[in-house]
Amino acid sequence: MQSISVQQLREREGVPLIDVREPDEYAAGHVPGAVNMPMSTLGEHVDDLPEGPFDVICQVGGRSARVVEALTARGLDATNVDGGTGAWAEAGYGLER
């Protein structure tokens, strides 16, 4: 499974970021530019995912890793963000609310 660190995520440009946490978690604080598509409803929205490469984030990296495994099995170019939103905040990077 492809994965990147939050430091690598911060340096990436032009790669969509999908936040698979629930809406209340997303509203409490998310990586700037992240689009919320909860894991619980992702199956209904697979056609809404970006074409081409994209990154997937959750709170600590577990849910996003499972999502990335499922999406790459379908042939999509998804990359997991290790450590998730928690690691992003711990690194001192700002969150949007």
Rank of each mutant, 00 (worst) to 15 (best):
M1T: 15
Q2D: 04
Q2R: 15
I4Q: 08
Q8M: 05
E11L: 12
R12Y: 06
G14D: 03
V15T: 15
D19C: 01
D19T: 04
D19R: 01
E22H: 09
E22T: 05
E22K: 04
P23N: 02
D24W: 13
D24V: 09
E25W: 00
E25D: 15
Y26C: 09
A27T: 12
A27V: 03
A27Q: 15
A27F: 02
A27D: 13
G29S: 06
G29V: 05
H30G: 01
P32L: 10
P32V: 12
A34L: 02
A34P: 00
V35I: 14
V35Y: 06
N36M: 11
M37Y: 09
G43S: 06
E44F: 13
D47K: 09
D47W: 00
D48E: 15
D48M: 08
D48C: 08
L49R: 13
P50W: 07
P50D: 09
P50V: 08
E51A: 15
E51C: 05
G52W: 03
F54L: 07
V56N: 07
V56W: 06
V56Y: 04
V56I: 08
I57V: 15
Q59H: 12
V60T: 15
V60A: 15
G62H: 11
R63N: 03
R63M: 11
S64K: 09
A65P: 06
V68Y: 12
V68Q: 13
E69R: 14
A73C: 05
G75L: 05
G75C: 07
L76C: 05
L76P: 07
D77Q: 12
D77W: 01
D77C: 01
A78D: 11
A78K: 04
T79F: 02
N80Q: 11
N80L: 03
V81Y: 07
D82I: 05
G83C: 08
G84S: 06
G86R: 14
A87C: 06
W88A: 09
E90C: 04
E90N: 13
A91N: 09
A91L: 07
G92L: 07
G92D: 06
G94S: 15
L95F: 05
E96L: 06
